[in-house]
Design a protein around this nucleic acid. Structure first.
Lengths: 350, 350
DNA sequence: GGTTACCTTTGGATCGTTCCAATCACCCAG
DNA sequence: CTGGGTGATTGGAACGATCCAAAGGTAACC
């Protein structure tokens, strides 16, 4: 049990009722805008509410009504601009629907995720929007929150199977299609030697993107060389180091589909150091469309995921689930959009 | 009164009590780790808690104890990486102290801020960490939340005076010193025609930064031209539009102190479009040191504010206030640190 | 006048927890 | 056998709202 803190004396329904000579029940009806109360009474009560500076105690109401007016939002990394935008979208939509957002950040640790979920669930959220920490499992999450609270999974699948009676909804990005679009675009630009760079294939999102890349290459009848697939951590720095692998052998790619924007920026850095100019000597695409993508030199062709819209969408999903607790669980694959900028140039003619 | 949503049947203390033949009160004592209960009983109860999958209802406990276990965090713009980091820091520290974060984002609108505060206060947070929306006033805020809930103001002062009996704490950045450091740095680089760009002077943080700029200029005996001060919204996009104003007249600046990093990036964009190379033709400094600043082209000289540490600090302040509700109100000015990167080049010799 | 109907209002129980004073079981000293 | 002390447990009243069945008041109608 954790620390808690006393709050100052608060005005309650009883104070208002006493203050204007009606019963508690009547005041409650006024508060909820019931048509039952007489106009004159309503006016009197409302005046008294204002006069005493009454604030509604939603916790007490929720207790009695067995309802909830909050949704928990648990993110693996809030500081990432992608998730910050997402959170803003979630909060916006939840706020409009009269819900409040309970925030939890797990810092990509499944241990911390357990603690955070355990703490949040005690506050009785009506549902949870969860972008699982890397390496966390369905089983763990279920143990922390029980099978009764609705969940919308975002961005990632936690490991392990979901028991049949539990209905979680999902909102995922269309990774495969995104990577396919990028690859197709490069092919249309005239490239044939196209590499796929960055990310680790043990992550589901990376596997999906790789699949999209392969799909486009095969559809175009291009034979994919094994050394055109180079993995790296999904960070700028590690990508810059790993980039050498792309040019180690002959038959070097003229275009590179990158796992995400960070990796793409790392590659740009590495190219510059080798005296190659990204967006002229080598074409590049990213994934995410972070703010920086519009400002780098060259500006980066990438896939826009519209994180704020995704946030709104996740909120809509959980709200829909609350309205229809028994409906079939939904899996939404959010579209991504190719944003063509300078970095995806045609190949240089020899 | 807004929509709410029913929650599934929950296990309560009564279920546990009935399940192992003790009273509700005893189970409650077990939950709170009281030394009063017999060892054997405790074991039996704990087993039953596990067996039935009990989850603590903190709202009910808070109601009875008249305590709160949540803190509201209200930000003017969550999507800004600076505030996202800040929020992560806040949530981290609050979580460790056993509090949960209620999130609210106002999108820089004081109307929305009123609505958000009104909704959050109904959930009875123990305190509020508030980065006020532009143009909001102390009076408004006070009307929304009353005088009883502790407040930590971050980053900005809302307009208007604070009644004497209300104790709000403040955590501000050393804006003036930061802008002075940046300006002095540019002067040392050899610049004389230095502009101050972006932000609105009706915002306190902006006025302070402007003051720091003026201080450095005056100390160096440089006469400041009126057209070296150009305002804009503190966003990348608006700054890019407003940038033209800097070069409208002759005597154009060779260096620009920007209100924040977003504005600096907007300026870079605008410069590139005019065929000027930021970091070579024009020196630039920012403010905030967002992650992007280390990765832009050129990398951005800016003032590091360590937003995550600030978040932790804000959380500490509110926690301290909860422990000592009557203590004198505190005002902390957080130091900022100049981070020199590529963008603050010396002037080009004609 | 009595019955019915409608519009308002209300007391008391309730949500899941904590607090408090009271009780109970047990042992030991006198 | 009584009295007191200790340790463990408990019933019932809160907390601030909502729900529900019931009741009071007025008006209309036969």
């Amino acid at each position: 049990m954790e620390s808690q803190t006393p709050v100052g004396r608060k005005i309650t329904l009883n104070d208002i009722a006493a203050g204007c000579g009606v019963s508690r029940a009547t005041v409650s009806l006024v508060l909820r805008g019931s048509p039952l109360v007489n106009k004159a009474t309503r006016a009197r009560v409302e005046e008294e509410l204002r006069r005493q500076g009454y604030v509604y105690n939603r916790a007490a109401a929720n207790l009695r009504r067995r309802t909830s007016s909050s949704i928990a939002l648990v993110l693996n990394e809030l500081a990432n601009p992608f998730f910050a935008e997402f959170a803003a979208g979630v909060d916006e939509t939840l706020g409009e629907a009269g819900f409040v957002t309970l925030l939890g950040s797990t810092g990509e640790s499944s241990t911390r995720q357990q603690a955070v979920l355990g703490s949040l669930i005690e506050h009785g959220p009506g549902g949870i929007i969860l972008s699982p920490a890397e390496g966390s499992s369905t089983e763990e999450v279920l143990a922390a929150i029980g099978a009764h609270t609705p969940v919308v999974l975002f961005n990632r699948e936690p490991g392990g199977p979901l028991p049949g009676h539990v209905r979680w909804d999902r909102l995922m990005l269309d990774n495969q299609r995104g990577a396919r679009l990028a690859t197709e675009h490069l092919i249309r630009q005239g490239h044939r030697r196209i590499a796929m760079f960055g990310g680790h294939d043990h992550a589901s999102s990376c596997r999906e993107r790789h699949a999209g890349y392969l799909e486009a290459m095969q559809a175009a009848g291009i034979e994919v060389q094994p050394h055109w697939r180079v993995e790296s951590k999904p960070t700028r720095l590690d990508a810059a180091h790993a980039a050498a692998g792309l040019f180690a052998l002959g038959d070097a790619p003229t275009a590179v589909v990158c796992y995400n924007d960070a990796v793409a920026f790392g590659l740009m850095l590495a190219l510059n150091q080798r005296g190659l100019q990204p967006g002229r000597d080598v074409a590049i695409t990213g994934f995410d469309d972070v703010a920086e993508a519009a400002m780098s030199t060259p500006t980066l062709t990438t896939l826009s995921t519209a994180p704020r819209a995704r946030g709104r969408q996740a909120a809509e999903l959980i709200l829909a689930r609350l309205r229809e607790p028994q409906s079939e669980s939904r899996a939404v694959i959010a579209p991504v959009e190719l944003v063509v900028r300078e970095s995806s140039c045609p190949p240089i003619q020899p």
